[in-house]
Design a protein around this nucleic acid. Structure first.
Lengths: 318, 318
DNA sequence: AGAGGTCATTGACGCGCGTCAATAGCCGCG
DNA sequence: CGCGGCTATTGACGCGCGTCAATGACCTCT
């Protein structure tokens, strides 16, 4: 019912070992005609090696696990992982997504069980996790260890730069209140603040809110009055603040400027549409693929240092 | 470095076979003290069986793959899969997410490679896929085969019922334009229309739009003028239509009524806030877990017929 | 005391595959 | 004719585990 390498061998009239070697790169030692016969048999039988068998023999599978943070997974993130799935599959790796479960124990179970080739996370691993993964012999790939620069840092920096260039001097940064969803808040805020410092602007005030009218109102209260320009964790945060400002009668952008992040479709439908930051997901995908491959193939991939291209989308909120 | 069942056996002073049986339910035949020794050794070594070995020996792994449709994956869907991950892991199954890749071939590769115990989809499998999966001996679980009723049918019905109860008589249904994202559009529209028929209301007009101002404007044009009540595929669609209506000066809900779906945080921040439909994701999770277990454990789980609870959230658009 | 019977435990096998060391065939050179 | 040196191919082993027939120990009943 389901073809094994033995079936392929029989059909091609060679030994199973021959099949295995030809399919695993050791093919150069074999007569061209033999290779052809084997490949033909593979095609005819629709043979696909069993991951279990491979994993057992090699000690690790061809599976790459991406840990999905508890952030809203949609839009851009989904595009990135979609691209990653395709690209890695083109290289014989199977990308699989796993919603992160917060407990180190279950991470351990997952890793031991599936023996993934690598484990991918968009947020830095804790020291515990990193240690755990190393002990299990799994490549742990996170933004810090990746060869490409951290996108999130760039985002915070760009938001601040834009606002300052526009002439705003009283800045603030707005996190998502729920720390689990504010996955990238740390680095973004840090670089946002750093850019302020570099440009001689007062350190930003920091607020945090959930995506609802009450939280947004409270956040505005904390600022103490109009006159701020706020870098927002994402477009949803910006939308909430925009809503609250509108209820309060603050004029946007004159009395409250906002810059979001993500360029979601809905960010075009607010009044006024949001000023926000867009990024090219294909580049992030590429960069991540590079990171993964360079860590797996010992031969040190060229790590083409793909740059992540960010772009400010001018809206009416800045 | 990484404990195997042999290590456990050595430490407990028994044979590997004993360990294997005790850990796999055949434990009743063993002396209580032996069981205790084995379990202690397992704990001390942090032993976790290798999925590869298991899969090889048993012919299928403990992995359940959920195919993620190309819809926006966030909010509710994410909650559902998060719950599913936890619940299944409690039952010894590892849920893993896979962005759907549209090509039957790659599905095949995935299935042959990982030998999943079951494969889960929120959208019905095509006949080809179903046939493929059956041939590979994988349980294919989709809404049609699930033991619980189809949520999407209920959603369409509820939207129509709400609008009709409110006195609206000229109804329309608004799909997402991109068929890939309009994953559940089919059943929802069907039941929406069916409810109209049952209530003696004219069949709804059908439109489709992307989440942007232009598409929404075109959709309004297609309706031919104000006076409609629209059941929307989701809150984003409703938001787009609300935006377009507002630009056009149509009064909501007097001249255009809307009911969305999902009860997203952003749906509370439109002006007026959307009337929408909320559902209890924990119930969906439960129902799905039941479906999965009843298909895997031959012993026909009681299939507790958990009902999916939907609730209309009154906003200002109906 | 021996036959029969339980209960606790083990040994051996195979799942599908990757990896060498080992073999067989061949040619050229001395 | 024999030997070394190729190249093409194969055999045997082990990865970690589940399964089941088989073993051994012990007890009861005749």
């Amino acid at each position: 019912m389901i073809a094994t390498s033995q079936d392929v061998a029989d059909r091609a009239g060679v030994s199973r070992s021959t099949v295995s070697q030809i399919l695993n790169g050791r093919g150069e030692h074999f007569a061209p005609e033999t290779q052809a016969r084997v490949r033909r048999a593979v095609a005819e039988l629709g043979y696909e090696p069993s991951a279990a068998g491979r994993a057992l023999a090699k000690g690790s599978s061809d599976i790459v696990i991406a840990l999905i943070p508890d952030t809203t997974f949609g839009g851009n993130l989904q595009d990135i992982y979609g691209g990653l799935t395709d690209e890695l599959s083109r290289r014989g790796l199977t990308l699989v997504l796993r919603l992160s479960t917060h407990t180190a124990a279950s991470l351990d179970r997952l890793v031991i069980g599936m023996k993934p080739r690598a484990i991918l996370s968009l947020t830095p691993f804790s020291d515990d996790d990193r240690q755990l993964l190393e002990r299990r012999g799994v490549e742990a790939i996170d933004p810090q260890s990746a060869s490409h620069p951290d996108v999130n840092a760039e985002i915070g920096r760009l938001q601040a730069r834009h606002l300052i260039d526009r002439g705003y001097r009283r800045l603030a940064y707005a996190h998502l209140h729920d720390a689990r969803s504010d996955t990238f808040g740390g680095p973004r805020e840090r670089e946002f603040a750093d850019e302020c410092r570099a440009r001689g602007v007062d350190a930003p005030q920091i607020v945090a809110l959930g995506i609802n009218a009450e939280d947004a109102a409270v956040a505005l209260d904390q600022l103490g009055g109009p006159g701020f320009a706020i870098g927002c964790y994402n477009d949803d945060v910006a939308t909430a603040l925009l809503h609250a400002a509108s209820l309060r009668g603050w004029r946007v952008p004159q009395e409250l400027a906002l810059i979001g992040m993500d360029h979601t479709p809905l960010s075009r439908l607010t009044t006024p549409p949001l000023t926000t930051v867009e990024y090219d997901t294909t580049l992030v995908t590429e960069a991540t693929v590079q990171s993964v491959l360079s860590r797996l193939d010992k031969e040190g991939f060229s790590a083409a240092h793909t740059e992540v291209r960010l772009r400010v989308i001018e809206g009416g909120t800045s």
